[in-house]
Amino acid sequence: MNTFLFFVLVALTTVMLVYLYRVVRGPTAFDRVLGLNGISTKAIILIVLLGTIFGRVDMFVDISTGYAILNLVGALAITKFLEERGERE
């Protein structure tokens, strides 16, 4: 079971790399926002998985909930900013 979870961890980290490519290279700002959102969802799942492996899910679920809420706040701030400034390369 632990080996399975470990491989899931490695696979999710690799998926984060793909999103990171989109964030760094992305031609428009919206590509970057979507890539950032993808990275943060992967990070949330990764933290819960780490908690499962360490056997302390209760503590790690708190962090991932905080992550999720702040991710929403950050995404709102970014979209508000883009709305005010208008789309730009």
Binding site: L20, V24, G35, L36, A43, I47, I63, Y67, G74, I78
Partner: peptide, 12 residues
């Protein structure tokens, strides 16, 4: 934006 993803990875 990229600094935000840097913080996510650092927290991990």
């Amino acid at each position: 934006f990229i600094l935000g993803s840097y913080s996510f990875v650092l927290a991990l």
